[in-house]
Write a protein that binds this DNA or RNA. Structure first.
Lengths: 207, 207, 207, 207
DNA sequence: CATGAATGAGTGTTCATTCAT
DNA sequence: AATGAATGAACACTCATTCAT
């Protein structure tokens, strides 16, 4: 589908991808301008539509590209033989922080992408989000040693509470970074805060 | 400021408010079209701008209108003398469900509004959100009896985990309703699920 | 035609006239907004169109009103028995300066009005300008003692040169006042400058 | 800056330029409609803004284009070695008449442009006018032999009177052409009239 | 007499997309 | 493959004018 694009020399590919990521991350799907993208990428209007037939397809290509890139790296790094839930989720949080440092624009783009709900992409994108969520949940919780958890509560619900906590924590941090301009995320501090939640959860949810 | 509008006969007011809520909720601030709103409300272009001088002012009016409407009803129903945290938050969850059933579009609009970050409204709206958050957090946690919580963990963090859980639960439910068209939220089921989380939290977080 | 308006209590008449003069003088015919006029005059939209059926008619009424007002006062003050051309034109210049001080907005409006050429009013207004010019030229030069002028040149042309000089002088002064904001016309200086031109003309054009 | 436009085939360039000149000359900056321009030029709305990013830039481009065109031709024809003031100004008047015959719309546009004072263009355009005036005055009066003028009067004022006379003469002629529809300027007659003024000035202002 | 709600065509400008070259 | 000229519908917003009250 995007084979034409993918057989371009990679320097040009990168210019286009970076320009598009930047524009979509900054302005959101609807307000992103293909004009800005081509200007920034240094290519012509026509070429963009030659490779990606529409803004929509460009967006989906971009999302898949970015998502796969970080997911690949994530799964390369994560140790799925670790059976203790907290060690596993701690890994996940750390790897995510690393990725955020290594590819800040890409991660920002992905996070912004998840928030889009323009009518143009809504239906298709909502389905994709759903899929990804279930796939990831399947993998990330696979092989976990559930025997350490208290027996008097529904373990699945506890796992949810824990995941949600780290998602919300990360959201809040990103939100702060956006509202307070110039605010840099202090990864050390976030890491320590996460650690405190880990301890609480171990105390409360383990036997 | 919007006295002109508010002295209209309420049938027309409603038509305009509903049309605007629908459009903003569906498309977000930037992509919402005043053209669609007037078409849907059955009024002329000029009239909308006769009442509200700009799209921005219309949006803020709408947000305040909706927010006050549900907040009023919320605070009328909530029992702030209840000092037990879980009973209090259970109340809140139930009332929110009621409101969602009673005013589904309005609640959707409010939730969507909170996610907007169009440059046109960002600064003004971020301030408003900040205010509302602190006001509400102050009220909702006021007078809570914290002595029932375990002494070996940071209570503030536990409160956060609990709030986040119910927020995420609600988000997921809404997301499901969006993805599966025609899917109706089964409040009975959601209510029961919430109840299960309550029990877990009481078991794990109370002394 | 405007009898309805003219039988209003004069305080309201004035408010309307002043508001309209201000708006037209500031923005020109096309860009002047009847909305601004009614807001400034403190009357309703409908009333303005009740008295003057259209923007165009309001403009023409206003022009006639202002023109007659200053013309009346001008002709009341000018001494048409003075037969020396330079004394007569000196008078005219002085009276015009007085009027400019006494009714600055009205004079500004008239001057601006003469510059309008919106297609809406062009044809009708051009005719009016032509008429006024010839009427005034007739009166102002009537009874002048032409015997003092050199015999070797066409006196009519000399009169034109002199009138044009004072018109252009006045234009330039007004232009300066507009370009340099806050610049106040120094009538004393203008008067002295005019005097210098008088002397030149007497030296060169009189026998 | 306007290189995109200038590399168009000249037939289309002309259509656009002529349409824009016509509209601006007729209606003035504020009331000129880009809709009318594109309709008249037979191009799409988008294209106009593809070449000129805004109405303002179109106007300034147009002004520079027209001004340079006539100024170039003017300075090509004028003989700046002629040191006699009247011979020099006679040249100027004749060349201007030629240009008016050759490019009537362009001259009209330039004259109208000088009268604009829309707030959108005022500041930028006033500066430009100021510049052009001083540049031209510098060139046109450069090397003039002032020794022929009477010693008993201020020569600078006399030069002004003379310039003003020809400006006003030209204005009146244009005004007549506008009021009487179908009236063609009889250049022969204007030329003769100008000649009469020259003679008067020579008689009165030279030693 | 007086109001101001209501109209709808108008404004300059941007947009994703197409297509001849 | 690559260009960028060209399109026209869409955008938020303003306007003079009308008319029911």
């Amino acid at each position: 589908m995007f084979s034409k694009f993918l057989s371009l020399d990679s320097e040009k590919q990168d210019r286009i991808i970076n320009a598009a990521i930047k524009e979509f991350a900054q302005k959101g799907y609807d307000s992103a301008s293909t004009n800005e993208i081509v200007k920034d990428a240094g290519i012509s209007k026509g070429l963009l539509f030659h490779y990606f037939q529409s803004k929509k397809q460009l967006f989906f290509f971009l999302f898949d590209y970015c998502y796969n890139l970080v997911a690949d790296e994530f799964y390369k790094k994560v140790d799925l033989t670790e059976r203790d839930f907290f060690k596993r989720i701690r890994q996940a949080v750390h790897i995510k922080m690393d990725l955020q440092t290594k590819y800040p624009e890409i991660l920002t783009f992905i996070q912004e992408a998840f928030r889009q709900d323009s009518p143009d992409i809504k239906d298709e994108f909502d389905k994709k989000k759903q899929e990804l969520n279930s796939v990831n949940a399947g993998i990330i919780y696979d092989g976990i040693d559930l025997s350490k958890f208290r027996d008097d509560v529904d373990v699945q619900k506890i796992l949810k509470v824990i995941s949600w906590t780290f998602e919300k924590m990360s959201d809040e941090e990103l939100q702060k970074a956006k509202v307070v301009p110039g605010h840099k995320i202090d990864y050390e501090k976030v890491f320590l805060e996460a650690e405190e939640y880990f301890e609480i959860f171990i105390k409360c949810f383990y036997k």
